[in-house]
């Protein structure tokens, strides 16, 4: 994880750049994503969540920068004076669609029976990007559902490994109950020493992980299809409050 250092306020300097041909200005140290969002320019994201460290892993926020042949993840790329950013091209859209399709193909996403249907970022992005079928063969891995916790459930079938849960637990709650085990295509979210969630000795039961989870992988017990509405905790406020209290 790469925590982006906080912007140095004293040296804050306004930079001018263009995004999709539009002149915008933003503070030095801000990322392309921050500058775009401040100007209501939509860039799709999944792993990014304001208030958590950005890790640039879902690759949905890739944008083009004039003068560079490579694509750049908007969530971790800092703006520069005179930068010309393009967030929407047919090529970018194709890559984004392919990435969404890869995610759907990786595990067993069945929107029709998912608690988070209608409130799921993966489902929304598929819609937004016009993904109307999955062109790659689905892998159909056999994955467990961990319902050992008193209040919450972890369904690996719906997990996209964005690690928001890992980061919110480590960075905000300070418990670091979650982490990733194994690697590559065999990666899985797990608690403690791979314990059932209900047996975790570090989990505080705060539920932040459930509410930052973009899909139905983490949800509250007792809910039926489409009933799990995620209430994103106001993470930047939490961070700011804590900093004030601890001063």
């Amino acid at each position: 994880m790469t925590p982006i250092p906080p912007h140095p306020p004293e040296t804050a300097q306004t930079l001018n750049l263009t995004i999709n041909g539009r002149q915008v200005s933003a503070q030095a140290g801000e990322t392309i994503l921050e500058a775009a969002r401040a100007n209501d320019i939509f860039i799709p994201t999944l792993c990014f969540l304001e208030g958590l460290s950005a890790q640039g892993s879902c690759r949905l926020c890739m944008v083009e920068i004039a003068g560079s042949a490579k694509l750049h993840p908007a969530c971790v790329t800092r703006i520069q004076e005179g930068m010309e950013v393009t967030t929407e091209t047919e090529r970018l859209r194709d890559y984004r669609r392919n990435i969404i399709e890869l995610l759907f193909s990786e595990r067993n996403h069945v929107c029709a029976v998912c608690v988070a249907s209608g409130h799921c970022e993966l489902q929304d992005l598929a819609s937004e990007l016009g993904v109307d079928h999955i062109s790659f063969p689905c892998r159909y891995p056999t994955l467990a559902v961990d319902a050992s916790h008193r209040r919450f459930v972890l369904d690996h079938n719906r997990c996209i490994l964005c690690t928001r849960c890992v980061r919110v637990c480590a960075e905000i709650e300070g418990a670091h109950t979650w982490d990733v085990k194994n690697r590559g295509i065999r990666s899985l979210i797990m608690a403690d020493f791979d314990a059932p969630w209900g047996d975790s000795e570090t989990c505080t039961g705060c539920g932040k992980c459930v509410h930052v989870c973009p899909t139905g992988a983490l949800f509250e017990k007792g809910l039926a299809v489409a009933e799990m509405r995620k209430q994103r905790p106001a993470l930047p406020t939490l961070v700011a409050n804590r900093a004030t209290e601890q001063r």
């Binding site: 670091h176 982490d179 085990k181 194994n182 690697r183 797990m190 403690d192």
Partner: peptide, 25 residues
């Protein structure tokens, strides 16, 4: 084994999941 990992996690004040994540990586 599990006891070894527990002991190391406790001694290095490292969250268990972080230790297990490294071991399996």
């Amino acid at each position: 084994d599990a006891d070894t990992l527990r002991h190391i996690a406790a001694r290095l004040k490292t969250p268990p999941s972080k230790v297990y994540g490294v071991v399996t990586f």
